[in-house]
Design a protein around this nucleic acid. Sequence first.
DNA 1: AACAATTATATTGTGCGCAATTGAAATTTG
DNA 2: CAAATTTCAATTGCGCACAATATAATTGTT
Lengths: 153, 153
Amino acid sequence: MPRKHSAADQPLRLDNQICFAVYSAAHAFNRVYKPLLDRLGLTYPQYLVMLVLWERDDVPVKDIGERLHLDSGTLTPLLKRLEAAHLVKRTRSSEDERQVLIALTPQGQALKDKARAVPQSILAAADCSVSELVAMKDEIVALRDRLNAVIGE
Amino acid sequence: MPRKHSAADQPLRLDNQICFAVYSAAHAFNRVYKPLLDRLGLTYPQYLVMLVLWERDDVPVKDIGERLHLDSGTLTPLLKRLEAAHLVKRTRSSEDERQVLIALTPQGQALKDKARAVPQSILAAADCSVSELVAMKDEIVALRDRLNAVIGE
DNA sequence: AACAATTATATTGTGCGCAATTGAAATTTG
DNA sequence: CAAATTTCAATTGCGCACAATATAATTGTT
């Protein structure tokens, strides 16, 4: 008897690819964030860096990179733009001259208050319960970590 | 009595953000795909375009853009690179001179065979069952579509 | 101490991704 | 049918993202 077509039957179909689901969801998030972050004067990757710094300040570039899985090629120019916007200060560590420590300016600290409205707006846009989102987040993180394990880190 | 800290308590913590889970998962996929797609001479976005074309050929740029949620600013140069690689041909439609139709070359068609190994490798890297992946994919697509609904499309 | 290996950041080059604008072709409207 | 509007692709400019390389500082080894 004839079977229905399933994902396993047509692995090259775009709509069967979880990677495209993730890819397009990331872009959708970006588009939802854009107007919210425009008010803060931040791009989405800059917002991620600020989230890291709002948790802990005065950290080397490397720590931010490990947290966000980004390298210096991405972070150096991004951090220079944040410095130009007077949100962070970049200073070479005196203990280890190789390191550049990133500290928040008073404006950078103050921006955290304006940022508190952002997660609420995102939650509203996602249009589902917090517990559902947390469950999905945990699944996606677990998948991400398995993928990262393959490429060795 | 004291409560445990939950995601809802600390909405600005990086690890509580589903958007970062999605963002970092997309990058993880990219890194897993890279060595596989290098053998095909494709980047990941180029691979997505080829997936669309392998399903249906000879389509206007706009159709590809709608399928992948990408605009001409992204697609025009990407398609020119695919043309330079002799994988597609770009021709203005005679019926509607505004449209540029994208057709696969014989090499572009032939590349599909080499691409069949890719999804298997990704499945292995994801290290979980097909049914789990399909379930996650459907959840992520549903979330993406709710986000897209908010920004109006 | 001298040398080699490692580490942290910076730089260069390529390819997205998207906003804003342009220009040409098609459609709608008066 | 002519003018206004809409549509499609291309272009420009900016900001990631990452590979590859460079440079300087630190650490490890003999």
